[in-house]
Design a protein around this nucleic acid. Structure first.
Lengths: 366, 366
DNA sequence: GTGAAAGCGCTAACAC
DNA sequence: GTGTTAGCGCTTTCAC
């Protein structure tokens, strides 16, 4: 504070009576500097309250330690706040790893790619985290082609619906599907939900899903069907597919519940579950004789907590942690750092198991 | 692409046959360079696909054009997603203004202040956007003391409850309350909601609020009370205060609705409104004779849309735009840029009026 | 109006 | 091990 401006490497060097390079070494490769010198330098740093200027370092090393993330326009879905939580977790993990998260926006995929270019050309962003990737995404293609480190949150779903990582059709320079990603195992989630309902004695467990073709939706459906099949109940499988909204959920539920044997519903989302809940409640009011209907949602949104809805919770923090890990792996593997061997050989694709949060809507009849 | 690496100022200068300084001028002060030279330089820039390196510029100018924002830990409230929307809008506005938003996290206020220091010392962040400020916030104090540009989203509520900007108790070097902020006029919001209900013929309009002492909550209550007073109905004013949750909202509503004359509820939040809605529905079922109850919420969360709840919508995008504006004003007013006069003289404190979104829960009896 | 010189704070080479 | 020499790409004097 006494000096007019902040101390620099030179200030520290003078103070410690060494060259400025030695100070730099103490900071970046402490092991190559003699302990007593190191001590002296560290003391000087301490005394002066020196903080390295990362901008200068960045100019020199061409590494920014900054990650870019496109802020998606708030989808109007009810599942708000999972992005909030993810963002918080990601920022936190990044910070812990010495990285920063920088936000940007883009109208569409092409604009986003243009932003990648700008961001890399002008501010030297090191890598990107992509959410909301979709089949045949031009963004992942571009990033692969330009050798930019990135990780997607969500698998690269083939147009078919099954997870990628399998078919390696030909010897293209870059197999787009085969990039680092982290995702939540939706199938395992619905499996848990369905099993939970079966364990509670339900036999005819219907599924309220999204229209066919969405990788995520089909994956969740698969988990339900699998479980039913394993239990020898696949013959009774009932599915209703609908758009993701409360109203549509209610309508779909009403259709399914015309079958009096259906006593439980596994829903692909909390929105649909919320609709189903309303439908079930009306049904219970109008027909006290009918068996009460158990319901599970997916995402464990605040709404689920609010209305006491059993739901599959996404471990967002884990996802963020693994995403940062995967990104770090790529960053460290770049030209300069020979630490490539240091990093534990890790899978480039990570599937995280969600867990079921059991609440009132799936517990024994009230 | 032909060349190995990216073009720099020198590359452009050579290409345009001018000094590198002239190129810099074309970029930063185009008006001082002769039109024909400028043309030539611009063409060279175009041809080479030159992009200025902001890191180098930053090292030289000490301005980063980056804004810091602490990512708050997801509050468990139902009102998720307003942060999402705000973040998107803020990023968008910032980008439009040539600024970037960088995220960070901190455990508490002190840790946040430490991050301010780190961020400014090492990466040279230009300013901050603070959300969730509270009475006697040490962060705003610190930022004022260190002359760091910032803007808060939300007024600096005095411990009393009234908005600051009024009492200037003594001649302290920095009047903490008197910093730039943007906020939503909650009072105007509940005023609109209450008036809407009065217009619909309701006479006894109760308020379900938060416990006393929260600036935001008291402000919202004030709007309701004001409107009732203006209508000469203050004598009938009924308030129930409760924690912000669906269950508490239902309980509070039940208490208020014991009074058969109460036909409308203005709620301080969507969570509470959601509870009230459930209570009202049960009441309607059990006592078909009673007049139906109209309900309004606050925040216009996805849940409100989902259950067709009338609610006060926060114009988040406007807030973001004004926040960026206020920050820009401070950034431009700094040492170098003499453009201080250019910026329209603007208020340093901005109150934005929300608007009511009328939905089923407040329309004439179904 | 344009150019030349200097330097922002740091690290990568290479000498010593 | 340590110091010296060069820049990274840009802008800011200040001559011309």
């Amino acid at each position: 504070m006494a000096e007019g401006s902040r101390p620099t490497l030179v200030t520290v060097a003078e103070h410690a009576r060494v060259s400025r390079q030695t100070v730099s070494n103490v900071l970046n490769s402490p092991e190559i500097v003699r302990p007593e010198t190191r001590e002296r330098v560290l003391r000087a740093i301490e005394e002066l309250g020196y903080r390295p200027n990362v901008v200068a370092r960045q100019l020199r090393t061409r590494r920014s330690s900054v990650l870019g993330l496109r802020m998606p326009p708030a989808s109007d879905g009810i599942s708000g706040q999972v992005l909030d939580r993810f963002l918080h977790a990601l920022t936190d993990e990044a910070q812990r790893a010495g990285l920063r998260v920088m936000l940007f926006t883009a109208e569409d995929d092409d604009a986003e790619i243009r932003e990648y270019q700008t961001l890399r050309a002008t501010t030297g962003i090191d890598g990107f985290v992509l959410a909301n990737t979709h089949a045949g995404d031009p963004r992942t293609q571009w990033l692969c082609d330009h050798d930019v480190p990135f990780v997607t949150v969500g698998r690269p779903w083939d147009d078919g619906g099954a997870p990628g990582a399998s078919t390696s059709d030909d010897g293209l320079p870059h197999k787009v599907d085969d990039h680092p990603w982290v995702d939540i195992d939706g199938r395992a989630g619905t499996r848990a939900a369905t099993q939970h309902l079966l364990d509670a004695g339900h036999r005819r467990v219907a599924f309220l899903g999204w229209p066919e073709g969405s990788g995520v939706g089909d994956d969740r459906l698969a988990g339900w069907l699998e479980t039913l099949t394993d239990a020898g109940l696949a013959g009774d499988a009932v599915v209703q597919r609908t758009e993701d909204s409360v109203a549509m959920g209610a309508a779909a539920a009403n259709r399914v519940l015309r079958d009096d044997d259906v006593t439980a519903l596994v829903c692909v989302s909390d929105s649909i579950a919320l609709g189903a809940l309303a439908a079930a409640r009306e049904l219970a009011a109008s027909r006290p004789d009918r068996a009460p209907v158990a319901i599970t949602g997916f995402d464990d949104t605040p709404v689920a907590r609010a209305v006491d809805l059993t739901s599959v919770a996404q471990p967002v923090a884990d996802v963020a942690a693994r995403a940062i890990e995967l990104l770090r792996g790529q960053l460290d593997a770049r030209p300069d750092s020979p630490d490539a061997s240091t990093g534990v050989a890790q899978d480039r694709q990570v599937l995280i198991e969600p867990h079921l949060v059991v609440r009132a809507t799936s517990r024994a009849a009230r």
